[in-house]
């Protein structure tokens, strides 16, 4: 249990979480043999004994952390439960509604959404409306955009503290204190940290896997707020990756707008088919219809 907790501590610290599978470049369904093989390959490449690169130390530490989590079944279970959904496309059938499944698979817990490569919490949580939109098509590919999290529109969250709950998207100023595990006893004892581990671990380890709901009192997760204030200095090396992150967000936003538009279109089709034009087919017809929709909207206003 302590191990699980420690792993959680590490992942959650400062709201940073890495997609270990992407880090090791393995599919999430990889078996232990594959994980080990991959780790060995990467160790030979990035261990400071092998690599003269100045960031070999950092790189190896990350790879090692990923492997140590994924090789240990209980840790892996907890980690997997907290993991954001995979940024992979599912094959689309003709019904547009099916696209919904893409962002809300049943096992898709909304875990921590950022990672150490995209650490700036504010940019990740509340993207401004001015974010570049690169078209819905891109949203179905994960190419080039790493570690992007998806936010679900669903109401039902496994309400563990490890989740970024959805209101963060609306407020834009997330309540950090919920997300990061701290040592409860900090507020009560000032002695050994071991003691605090012991006292904090009961619910929190399970919380993430959704067994314990929100039974956690906020004291356990209380230090994060402070942590975030201090974290800015140590993310300079990651700053360059922010743009990729925002782009990912824009994609998602664009996707959502598209879905909304389609819905409006469908409703209109049902309510007043003549307005839409039953014979409409092809792109021209669609734009024409769109114009009509806009006109209708204007007249309504």
């Amino acid at each position: 249990m302590t191990d699980i907790l420690k792993q959680k501590m590490r992942s959650l610290k400062g709201g940073k979480a890495v997609d270990y599978y992407q880090l090791l470049d393995i599919p999430r369904v990889a078996n232990p043999e594959d994980i080990e093989y991959r780790y060995h390959e990467l160790a030979k490449k990035y261990h400071p004994d092998r690599s003269k690169s100045p960031d070999a130390h950092e790189k190896f530490i990350k790879i090692k952390e990923a492997y140590e989590t994924l090789k240990n079944p209980p840790k892996k279970k907890v980690y997997d439960a907290c993991l954001p959904p995979e940024e992979k496309a599912v094959e689309a059938s003709s019904e547009p509604e099916d696209f919904e499944g893409f962002s809300s698979e049943p096992e898709d817990f909304e875990g921590f959404s950022s990672d150490s490569d995209a650490p700036s919490p504010d940019s990740s949580i509340s993207p401004g409306p001015d974010q570049p939109v690169s078209g819905p098509k891109g949203a179905f590919k994960s190419t080039g955009i790493s570690y992007v999290s998806f936010k679900s529109d669903r109401e039902s969250y496994p309400s563990g503290p490890a989740s970024f709950s959805k209101d963060t998207g609306e407020t834009g100023k997330p309540e950090r204190s919920k997300y990061v595990l701290s040592e409860k006893s900090l507020n009560r004892h000032d002695r050994s940290k071991e003691v605090s581990y012991g006292s904090g671990q009961n619910g929190s380890g399970q919380n993430c896997s959704g067994q314990n709901g929100s039974g956690q009192n906020s004291a356990d997760w209380s230090y994060v707020k402070v942590k975030y204030e201090g974290i800015d200095e140590d993310i300079d090396d990651d700053a360059g990756k922010k743009s990729g992150f925002s782009a990912g967000f824009a994609l998602r936003k664009a996707f959502r707008y598209t879905v909304v538009l389609i819905c409006i279109f469908l409703v209109l089709t049902i309510v007043s088919p003549d307005l839409v034009g039953a014979k409409a087919s092809g792109l021209g017809a669609v734009t024409e219809t769109f114009d009509k929709v806009v006109l209708l909207a204007k007249s309504l206003v």
């Binding site: 590490r10 130390h57 190896f60 530490i61 040592e183 900090l186 000032d190 940290k193």
Partner: peptide, 10 residues
């Protein structure tokens, strides 16, 4: 190589 941290208080 490895790294780990813990939070302490006054």
């Amino acid at each position: 190589p490895t790294r780990n941290s813990k939070v302490f208080t006054t």
